[in-house]
Design a binder for these strands. Structure first.
Lengths: 223, 223
DNA sequence: TTGTAATCTGTACAGACGTACAGTGAGCTC
DNA sequence: GAGCTCACTGTACGTCTGTACAGATTACAA
């Protein structure tokens, strides 16, 4: 049934037509966006007629909802487990996430921009995990529910999601698509490098200076 | 002429029709994407007829190119200056970037995902700046043109761009849109927080452990 | 005033889109 | 084997889209 959820080696013809349509929709939505993808294009990619797509999913919105469901189904275990273990916000999870099936992440990346409620929920879950991580690791710096931890966690979620949303540009610069399983860890390792180095920079005198300038600019927005 | 480039206080009716159309297109493209925005919707928003849009920009692609030109025009000075001063990759520039006109950044964020050559060039410029910054600040860690600095700079560019691309989610969580000038510095300050803290984490024993796991996973991709 | 170019409007058209629906055939039950 | 359900196809319809184009209006130069 899964096709994408449990990548078996069976040829595509062995899949249910319904699953084949959903997989094709996942790819088309990911590549062309919600508006750009067409039911006829999806039907062609799945090797079925336009009518069958309607028969199984009623409408375009219904098909999109089915794609959303497939994503949450695939990520549910991973996310809830991450939340339970309290490791959701730690950088390691992102690498784990990258190890997941590429098509799903590609779809999620587009859905994040096209604005689906599922993607929004996932972003919030990521931010909540980051908030928990920050508050747990540096309780004095990030008191739970403080504005500071809320801002930092939100931005952290956006930065990490950004590497998924913009994976196409990374693929172009890397030579390999980082969303393919064999190069999944490459983003994670680079992120560790960035954090280690720019982290040094952030606590350096120059970093303090930037922080002061920004703070002054925020409190006294003149010139 | 500028309208967006030099925000004067004159009412919209004082602007050239051509400039009004371009401004409306910027906003519509930013909100609905290249595919989702329609020439009729743009014409309505600008208060002109559909025919006039064609007259001034020939085609939808022509209008999009004009929007791209407006963006590079607005950013050219800023970016070249940043490159000359060698400050393009430093975190401070992002705050500077955020202080620019909101509509332009919103358009750029969408263009980055919809895939315009202009957006791609700007991403590359950002990555090149980050590469320069890393190599200049930590020459031994990031030898110029090494794979390591290339990976780190690419991911850094993606993370920073991510805060722009996903600004809608930040706006929802912040309560204020961070792309409005008065809250421009909020993202920058939060980023400094994230870098300072996660930077500590990245060089901690736990960070080393994650790095080792990821490296082993990369070199020996078995279970 | 006449002529010419630029600005601007309205209509018309071909194609692509989502959706509705009649119809076909295979499998299954009673 | 009659009846039924379900997977599946093909066609048709109304709407929306980008584009083309004729014509009206204005600005300006000769």
């Amino acid at each position: 049934m899964g096709s994408i959820l449990s990548p078996d080696d069976r040829p595509a013809t062995d899949l249910t037509a319904r699953a084949r349509i959903r997989d094709a929709a996942l790819a088309q939505f990911a590549e062309h966006g919600t508006k750009g993808a067409t039911l006829r294009g999806i039907a062609d990619a799945a090797g079925v007629s336009l009518g069958l797509v309607q028969h199984h999913f009623r409408s375009k919105e219904g098909l999109r909802a089915a794609c959303d469901d497939a994503v949450v189904e695939a990520f549910r275990g991973r996310l809830t487990r991450g939340t339970a273990e309290g490791t959701l916000g730690e950088p390691g999870l992102l690498g784990d996430l990258f190890a997941t099936s590429g098509p799903l992440l590609r779809y999620l990346a587009r859905a994040l921009v096209d604005g689906s409620s599922t993607a929004a929920a996932m972003f919030d879950e990521l931010a909540a995990g980051a908030e928990d991580f920050l508050s747990r690791t540096w309780p004095d710096r990030y008191p739970p529910d403080s504005p500071r931890v809320r801002d930092a966690a939100s931005v952290m979620a956006a930065m990490h999601s950004g590497t998924i949303v913009l994976h196409g540009y990374l693929a172009r610069r890397f030579g390999d698509d980082p969303l393919d399983r064999e190069h999944a860890t490459r983003i994670g390792l680079a992120m560790l490098d960035v954090y280690a180095s720019v982290g040094e920079f952030a606590v350096s005198p120059t970093g303090d200076q930037i922080r002061e300038t920004a703070t002054r600019l925020r409190d006294h927005p003149d010139t």
